[in-house]
């Protein structure tokens, strides 16, 4: 027998600090797998966020430079402009990218910065304890929307990926999820395409990944994966939102 599935080369030997059933570590693994498959581990630089994934550098085994909360796209811009032949990605949660860092993200997209952005949408602020995020669904309970998110009081969810698709410099934006084997495979393909888009120097790409947060959703991990299918995708349909890249090799 031969080993067909093991810890990828660019994932450090470490126990994740994430809660049981959290999607972050699946996404970390997928990024590490794609980096290995594309052979870009020696020239990739990651920009982790503030939030649960702030410790991403403890897991993904490439050079990493920590950004202030929300500023991933700006820090990545500085890195990529100085090192245009390197692969630069930012890894950002929904509060990081769609609230405090909205301006940096929209303008990086509009400039067509040749970076890959991984936007993890778990519909809440995870690390701070489950407050309302810009992505929290209408009616969804959080510690700051005790009766459920109310459009009049709390505004409706922000569809950041759709907004970014309008930006002229964005070339590829897809929304995926990591709640099922099928969706995980699709997410990996999207991450691959995003990196390849950057390797070809085609412009700004982003993968929004719906990711379970069982603890703050007050569900079991299995319930959380089902909630994404049954509820979350109604607000955030899984689809290619923008693609001017088409088929890409390399």
């Amino acid at each position: 027998m031969q080993k067909v599935f093991q810890r990828p080369k660019y994932l450090k030997q470490a126990v994740f600090h994430y809660c049981p059933g959290c999607g972050h570590s699946i996404i970390h693994r997928l990024i590490a797998e794609v980096i290995e498959e594309l052979g870009i581990g020696e020239k990739t630089i990651g920009v982790p966020p503030a939030g649960c994934a702030v410790l991403a550098y403890d897991y993904i085994d490439v050079d990493m430079g920590e950004a202030p909360h929300g500023r991933g796209a700006a820090v990545a811009t500085g890195l990529k402009r100085v090192l245009p032949d390197h692969i630069v990605f930012s890894y950002q949660g929904d509060g990081d990218i769609a609230a405090i860092g909205t301006a940096e993200t929209i303008h990086a997209a509009n400039r067509g910065e040749s970076i890959s952005v991984f936007f993890i949408n778990n519909a809440c602020y995870g690390m701070t304890g489950g407050q309302m995020a810009p992505t929290t669904l209408l009616g969804q309970e959080s510690t700051t929307t005790p009766g459920g998110r109310n459009e009049k009081r709390d505004a409706a969810p922000l569809d950041l990926s759709e907004i970014l698709a309008i930006a002229r410099g964005s070339v590829y934006i897809e929304r995926t999820a990591v709640n099922s084997p099928r969706n995980i495979r699709k997410t990996k393909r999207a991450i691959t395409k995003s990196f390849k888009t950057q390797m070809a120097g085609l412009g700004f790409s982003l993968v929004e990944i719906l990711s379970p947060c069982p603890v703050n959703w007050k569900m079991t991990p299995v319930e959380a994966t089902k909630w994404i299918d049954d509820t979350m995708v109604k607000t955030y349909p899984l689809k290619v939102i923008k693609d001017t890249v088409g088929k890409i090799d390399g």
Binding site: L79, R81, E104
Partner: peptide, 26 residues
Amino acid sequence: GTFVQAESEIAAINMVIGAAMAGARA
């Protein structure tokens, strides 16, 4: 040489952070 007109002062200093990480005089 790289010049970026940033969308804000905040973005500008954060771009400088990235450029400095990459080793440039920024």
